[in-house]
């Protein structure tokens, strides 16, 4: 297990998570200006909503590290380990958001879940470009989203942790984690 944790960069994931939590606590409410379609529409995105992208990237990098062919034939349940690492880290971020009540803490935890879920889904298509998907989604939400308007899709820039904004991130993470396990749960065909 220790070797697996080392190969999958568990220490780096912990450090990234701690640094992100520190950044959210220290400067999470700092607004970064973003361009909008009209000059009158001045808007900014809190740093707390953007910072989880880096922590999510480190987490996904850790989860997808390791020799794919070696792990495919491993005796140990490495897929469960990987799913556990991602789920545990996301759960930890939620616990931190609940315990450490800082502005945008819950929204930051939601974004970590959502970014990780999007990356997990994108990894089904291409593993080495998985984190480009949440990054592109974040930029699109920053440019086109309307925080506070109640849209279901622009959750990355929604400062409020309203339950409705959790639907897509939670669904992405659930699907992203479940999808690799589905083929193993299917009944196997025996070759003749």
């Amino acid at each position: 297990m220790r070797t697996w944790l080392r190969v999958h960069r568990a220490a780096q994931v912990c450090v990234a998570l701690a640094l992100t939590a520190g950044l959210v606590a220290a400067a999470g409410d700092v607004l970064v200006p973003v361009p909008r379609p009209t000059l009158d529409d001045l808007a900014g995105v809190p740093v707390a909503l953007v910072a989880p992208l880096v922590a999510s990237s480190v987490l996904v990098r850790g989860a997808l590290a390791g020799g794919g062919s070696l792990e495919a034939v491993a005796v140990r349940p490495v897929l469960a380990y990987r799913t556990g690492l991602v789920a545990l880290t996301c759960a930890l971020s939620l616990v931190m958001a609940v315990v450490e009540t800082v502005p945008y803490g819950a929204a930051a935890a939601r974004n970590l879940v959502g970014f990780t879920g999007l990356a997990a889904l994108a990894a089904l298509w291409r593993r080495d470009a998985a984190t480009a998907a949440p990054a592109a989604y974040l930029v699109a939400a920053m440019l086109l989203g309307r925080p506070g308007a109640g849209s279901w899709w622009d959750w990355p820039v929604e400062p409020s942790p309203h339950p409705a904004t959790w639907v897509v991130p939670a669904a992405c993470l659930g699907l992203g984690l479940a999808a690799p396990a589905l083929p193993r749960l299917m009944p196997r065909r025996h070759r003749r």
């Binding site: 200006p33 990098r61 080495d128």
Partner: peptide, 23 residues
């Protein structure tokens, strides 16, 4: 850096450096 970390880091980091000083 592996692209999984490098790509989002450069995307967000560069954007922050370019956009944030205006505030």
């Amino acid at each position: 850096l592996h692209p999984l970390v490098g790509v989002p880091l450069l995307l967000v980091g560069t954007w922050l450096w370019l956009a944030y000083p205006a505030a």
